[in-house]
């Protein structure tokens, strides 16, 4: 997978030409990107000021709801198109699990969580893929894939909701989409410099580059901050839908108890912070309403009746 075309020198040159995300002292492309991400976050929090006063009243009209309203229709269309390409890549690596009842079940649980989120209008679909690896993937635009290996270590519907809610949070917050776009802006700079040699990219080529960037991020992972944010959101989203807010802890504990060396966890551990660190983070951010929602749902055991 070609991540960045052209030489490093050309890339840096393009960045300077764009004048977009350049830190005078930054040494590497990674530093530049990190800087851009941090500035993005700072700008986001500035834009969101003043914060809504009482936390309880902020329930359905969150900062996220306001951000979502500001997404342009074109950007949402692009997000969905990229996501379909990224999902196609994951599905090219592992086929769908031929188990219709599980497929329907993950869609019902996933949709019930989505219904309580700010982006319920996206074309959400969920699927289990047939691999022993323990993992789940969120493609931009609302395609969420959970592996059979992860599904099979889940003990309750609350835990399934927690896992899907983590992926839903990635989509809601545009975690992958934003990284794809930021990195592609860097590449676009490189192609402006190289345009005389290669000619202008077609729309199809641009989409192809965005999709391969997305697949690259699936293989490499997001930054820790995005994962911790998705965990925190997952507790909220699952609890909004009526599930146990602490079910995510059960899953993380089960992952932590497994050997990090085990091949079924290799990709997950490579692309996510250590489960013990995630447990610490989610316990630290849980507030009183979330702690009060740490109650097993009446639907918890429904997962055991999903055959065969």
């Amino acid at each position: 997978m070609t991540m960045v075309r052209g030489s490093g020198l050309l890339r840096i040159g393009a960045l300077l030409a764009l004048g977009a995300v350049v830190d005078a002292g930054a040494q590497s492309l990674d530093d530049l990107l990190k800087g851009a991400l941090q500035r993005g976050k700072a700008a986001e929090s500035l834009l969101n000021l003043p914060k809504k006063a009482p936390e309880a009243a902020a329930t359905q009209d969150s900062d996220l709801a306001r951000q979502v309203r500001a997404f342009s229709p074109q950007s949402v269309t692009e997000e969905i198109q990229i996501g379909e390409g990224v999902a196609a890549t994951v599905l090219g690596a592992a086929p769908l699990w031929a188990n219709a009842s599980v497929q329907r079940y993950v869609n019902l649980v996933g949709r019930s969580v989505v219904e309580q989120s700010e982006r319920r209008d996206l074309p959400w679909s969920f699927a289990a893929i047939d691999t022993t690896s323990i993992n789940a993937f969120a493609a931009p635009g609302g395609i969420v894939l959970i592996t059979r290996g992860l599904y099979e270590i889940l003990e309750t519907e609350d835990e399934l909701a927690a896992v899907l809610a983590h992926e839903i949070a990635h989509v809601n917050r545009r975690h992958h989409f934003n990284v794809i776009k930021q990195q592609s802006a860097v590449d676009a700079g490189a192609s402006i410099v190289g345009r005389n040699l290669r000619g202008a990219a077609t729309e199809r080529e641009v989409m192809g580059a965005l999709v391969s960037k997305g697949a690259e991020i699936m293989a490499r992972g997001l930054d820790k901050g995005a994962e911790f944010e998705a965990d925190a959101d997952a507790m909220v989203l699952a609890a909004r839908a009526g599930y146990d807010s602490s079910a995510l802890l059960n899953v993380l504990e089960r992952l932590a108890a497994r050997s990090a060396q085990h091949s079924s966890l290799e990709l997950l551990f490579k692309t996510h912070p250590a489960p013990a660190d995630r447990i610490r983070e989610v316990s630290a951010v849980a507030n009183e309403p979330i702690i009060a929602a740490a109650v097993s749902s009446e639907a918890a055991d429904r997962i055991k009746r999903v055959g065969p």
């Binding site: 969150s62 009526g242 749902s297």
Partner: peptide, 19 residues
């Protein structure tokens, strides 16, 4: 479909703000 599924599972929606 999901509304019926939630109701069959007696899932009670809660109003909660992000953390």
């Amino acid at each position: 479909d999901s509304a019926q599924f939630s109701s069959e599972g007696r899932l009670q929606a809660r109003k909660l703000a992000y953390l």
